[in-house]
C-alpha cells in the first residue's frame, strides 16, 4: 500500500472535523475522496500532506508512519483548490521549484521540466508568467509542478472545482490520461459525484467526518451500503416499507407486496430506487423480476435530455421516474415498472 490512513481524527478547537477515518490507497491506484462540502475532506488531505498535525491517528506512506514528519520529508505532491503558482516565477521556474529542493543539477532539471511540461501539453508556455495563462493552463502547470519531483502520492484537493463545466470535463480526461501515463498513485478530493465516478478506480465516501463507504464507483452506485451513499452518488427515490411479513418474506412498498428473500432486521425498512430504473407507462410484465405499481402523474418536467415524471402512489408517497419521449399527461393514471434487482433495501 502506498498510503495508509488509520484512525485519523482531528479537532479544530472543540469542533470535531474528522472522526476515526481509515482507508488506504494501493500502488498506482486513483482513489477519490468524495463527500459534501464541509465534510472534512480537506482536513484529511492536509493531514496526509503534513500541513496539519492530526489530533489522533496515523498516516503511513510506503509502510512507514509519517505522522510526525514535516511536509517536506513526505514525498507527497499537492495541488490545491485555490491557485498556488508563484506569481514571481515563470512557468518553467514554478515547475523546477521542487527539483531545486532535491538538489538536482541544472541540466537534468531542465530536462525534467521539459518532459513534465510536454506531459501536460504546455511546452509552448515554458517562459510565460502564470498570469498570462488561462485558468485551465494554470491548473495544468500546477499538476506539472506537483508531478516533477516524482512524488510517492499525488493529492488533488478539489482541483477542478473553480473551472467551468466544459473545462472540467476536459481536465478530468487529462488527469486520467496523465495518471495512466505516469502511473502515479493519486488521491483526488471532490464533492462532485460525477467527477469522482468518472475519474476514480475506487471511492472513499465521507459523511460528516466519517467514512460512509469504500468501494468501486459502479458497485457503490448500484448497491450502496447505506441511504446516505445511495442518495449522494445520484438521484434516488426513497420509500418507506410499511409492512414486513416474515412468514412469507414479503415487504409492502407503495401499496405493493414485494418478495424479498433477504429480509431486513427492522420492521420499518426503507427502499431506494433510482429514477432511471423506474419505467413509466408500458410495464413489462413478462419479466419475472418486474414489480408493477399503479399511480397518478403529479408533475412532468422536461429536463432537456429526458422527461422527469413525478407519480403519486396509493400510499401518498411520491416517486420520480423517467421517460425518453411521449410522457403521460398530468392526472393520468399510469403503471410504473421497477426491476426488483434495482431496489435497494436499508434498515433505516
Amino acid at each position: 500500500m502506498t498510503l495508509d490512513v488509520s484512525g485519523l481524527t482531528h479537532q479544530y478547537g472543540s469542533k470535531l472535523a474528522i472522526d476515526d477515518v481509515s482507508f488506504s490507497v494501493g500502488d498506482g491506484e486513483l482513489v477519490a475522496l468524495l463527500g459534501p462540502s464541509g465534510c472534512g475532506k480537506t482536513t484529511i488531505v492536509q493531514a496526509i500532506a503534513g500541513h496539519i498535525t492530526p489530533t489522533a491517528g496515523t498516516v503511513s506512506l510506503r509502510g512507514q508512519a509519517v505522522t510526525a514528519q514535516p511536509p517536506e520529508a513526505r514525498g507527497v505532491g499537492v495541488v490545491f483548490q485555490e491557485p498556488t503558482l508563484y506569481p514571481h516565477l515563470t512557468v518553467a521556474e514554478n515547475v523546477a521549484y521542487g527539483l531545486k529542493a532535491q538538489g538536482m543539477g541544472a541540466t537534468e532539471r531542465e530536462q525534467r521540466v521539459e518532459s513534465v511540461l510536454a506531459l501536460v501539453d504546455l511546452s509552448a508556455s515554458h517562459d510565460a508568467m502564470p498570469t498570462e495563462l488561462s485558468g485551465g493552463q494554470r491548473r495544468r502547470v500546477e499538476l506539472a509542478r506537483a508531478l516533477a519531483p516524482k512524488p510517492d502520492i499525488l493529492l488533488l484537493d478539489e482541483p477542478l472545482s473553480a473551472l467551468d463545466r466544459a473545462l472540467r470535463r476536459q481536465l478530468q480526461a487529462e488527469i486520467r490520461r496523465i495518471q495512466a501515463e505516469t502511473g502515479v498513485t493519486t488521491l483526488v478530493v471532490t464533492h462532485d459525484q460525477q467527477e469522482a465516478m468518472s475519474l476514480a478506480d475506487r471511492l472513499v465516501v465521507i459523511q460528516e467526518g466519517q467514512v460512509a463507504a469504500v468501494g468501486e464507483p459502479r458497485e457503490l452506485y448500484h448497491s450502496p451500503p447505506n441511504r446516505f451513499v445511495g442518495s449522494f452518488l445520484g438521484r434516488a427515490n426513497t420509500l418507506e416499507a410499511t409492512g414486513v411479513d416474515r412468514t412469507q418474506s414479503v415487504i409492502r412498498v407503495g401499496g405493493t407486496a414485494i418478495e424479498q428473500p433477504d429480509l431486513p432486521e427492522t420492521d420499518q425498512p426503507v427502499v431506494q430506487i433510482r429514477p432511471e430504473s423506474v419505467t413509466v407507462g408500458s410495464a413489462d410484465d413478462s419479466s419475472a423480476d418486474e414489480i408493477t405499481f399503479s399511480g397518478q402523474v403529479v408533475k412532468v418536467s422536461d429536463v432537456g435530455t429526458q422527461y422527469d415524471i413525478e407519480i403519486e402512489l396509493p400510499t401518498g408517497e411520491r416517486l420520480v421516474g423517467t421517460a425518453q419521449r411521449s410522457p403521460p399527461g398530468v392526472d393520468e393514471t399510469v403503471s410504473v415498472g421497477i426491476d426488483r434487482r434495482d431496489l435497494v433495501v436499508f434498515d433505516e
Binding site: 514535516p70 511536509p71 507527497v76 490545491f80 506537483a146
Partner: peptide, 13 residues
C-alpha cells in the same frame, strides 16, 4: 497555501 505548496515541494520552513 503558497507556503504549504513550497513545503510539500521539499523546502523546509
Amino acid at each position: 497555501r503558497l507556503e504549504q505548496a513550497s513545503r510539500s515541494l521539499g523546502y523546509g520552513p
